[in-house]
Design a binder for these strands. Sequence first.
DNA 1: CTGATATCATTTGCATACGAATGAATTTGC
DNA 2: GCAAATTCATTCGTATGCAAATGATATCAG
Lengths: 151, 151
Amino acid sequence: MTTAKAPLALVGAEPDDGYRLQEQIGFVLRKAHQRHVAIFASRIADLTPPQFAALARLHEVGEASQNQLGQMIAMDAATVKGVIDRLRSRGYVELKKHDTDKRLLLVSLTAAGHDAVEELIPLAKAITEETLAPLTAKEAAQFLRLLGRLA
Amino acid sequence: MTTAKAPLALVGAEPDDGYRLQEQIGFVLRKAHQRHVAIFASRIADLTPPQFAALARLHEVGEASQNQLGQMIAMDAATVKGVIDRLRSRGYVELKKHDTDKRLLLVSLTAAGHDAVEELIPLAKAITEETLAPLTAKEAAQFLRLLGRLA
DNA sequence: CTGATATCATTTGCATACGAATGAATTTGC
DNA sequence: GCAAATTCATTCGTATGCAAATGATATCAG
């Protein structure tokens, strides 16, 4: 039996021993996300990515209850409420009660919100491009495809 | 001029018009990260990913100042402090002042922290595997390689 | 040596993010 | 029809995450 504490020139058969944080998907995912958020902030200073996601989705679908919107942008009810509150205080969205179902609070873009989204969409595309800049076009497409399967 | 509001059976030559949140890297990255955190929580209930990252890094390097540790796990000083505080209140790490440089606060694992990391490392590997499960081994390797370039 | 700079830890304020609890309103099951 | 289960919005508590300010300490420049 081998009594060596550390493998000397190991033959590639002992994958269990080393643990490197850099190889853990979560750690790298977190760092990539951080980098993206920084790029976003440098180009769109007055909105956060979640806020923009809410506006962009409302621009697509027109109107939704808070819960529905949350599902559409992967946010739980508590988080959505905070995001919508802040967007409302800036005049980008408005709330109104549903006609028949008194539980629902419908969210929609104001005119200002609509204008803001349309102005920001080109910037958002540029942000995606800058985030993917370290990759070639082919790699970026591959990456987006795989990332989509993990999300 | 065309007055149609929506393109009817468009020929695939108009990439500028559509904006789909699903295609924005940040949105998908955020969702993938959320999914990973959920997997992590289901397997390691009593630590968060950042807390585990701090423990794992200390396990690698032995001892570091708060700022150094922050750089090693991509956390700013304010965030590190909170994470270390919580780990300390659980007895996983301890702090001591640097001998000569009175500004530095050195962080290191306690015996309990050391044991915890070694127990959790196999679970962390399983978490990475589960997160990458939607991909084949080849795709996962490719994905990790590309993600590393973006992080 | 000393004033300017830099570094470190800390604190505050704001913004996600989620679990859990709550009360109001709706839908289901029988 | 009506009790049970569900849905919705809200609130609370905890945990990142970052910008900015602060005070203590160290280093650097001249």
